[in-house]
Structures are given as structure tokens and as C-alpha cells.
Amino acid sequence: MSLYILLIFINLPFIFLAITGIITRYKMKRISRRRASIQLLIWLFILMGLIVARPLYYWLFAQELTASDALSLFDVVQITAIVFLLYIVNGLSTRIEQTEKRLNDLHQALSIRLSSKK
């Protein structure tokens, strides 16, 4: 199997999970339409990048715009690690933001409630 095909297959689950996560969060009104659109665009861009990696490399090579070696197994592992980290970071940042807001709201409500009991 070509390493380029392997690259797409290994990364596809993360991209699929990220895109379904964005759609779910948007439908459940946890993120705004704007934020969902931007995140979707980023993941679609990554997917496109992986799909066109092989033709792009050969085209650049033919045009003598690159002299680098073709994709190695190490490159596949490295790119997959980057995509995986992006997936994790994106999910974590959304969760941290939601938790921060809930904590602030809780602190505020608790302070007001305790003051009224004095």
C-alpha cells in the first residue's frame, strides 16, 4: 500500500471524529455558527491537504520546486501525531472554555446566594 494512502487512512478517523464533534456541538448550541464554520474549514483543509499530498509532491518535483524525498513511514507517523494533537487540543480548548464559564457562573451565583442568607 502506498504511504500516501496509508496517511489518509490513518488520519481519516480523527478528521471524521473532529467534524462530527463540531456538527454535534453546533447543533446542541454549545458553539456559535461562526466558530463551527471556521473549525469545519480548518479540518476540511487538513483533509484536502492529505488527499492532494501525493499529486502535489509529484507536481512540485516535476517543476523542480522541491528536491526532497518522497513520503517516508516516519513522515506518516509524524503527520498523524500532529493531526491527533490538533484534534485533542481543539476538543480541550472548547471544554476548558465551557468549564471556565460554568465555574464563573457558579462562583457568582454562590456568592450572591450566600450573601442573601446572612
Binding site: N104, H107, Q108, L110, S111, I112, L114, S115, K118
Partner: peptide
């Protein structure tokens, strides 16, 4: 008097 349990900053106190 409303007592914040944690120090939240001027923005947090104003919001409360």
C-alpha cells in the same frame, strides 16, 4: 455585602 469566595478580579466582581 457580597463576599467572593475566590479572588476573581475587577471584571468578575463587577459581573457579580
Amino acid at each position: 455585602v457580597i463576599d467572593h469566595i475566590l479572588n476573581s478580579g475587577a471584571g468578575g466582581a463587577t459581573a457579580t
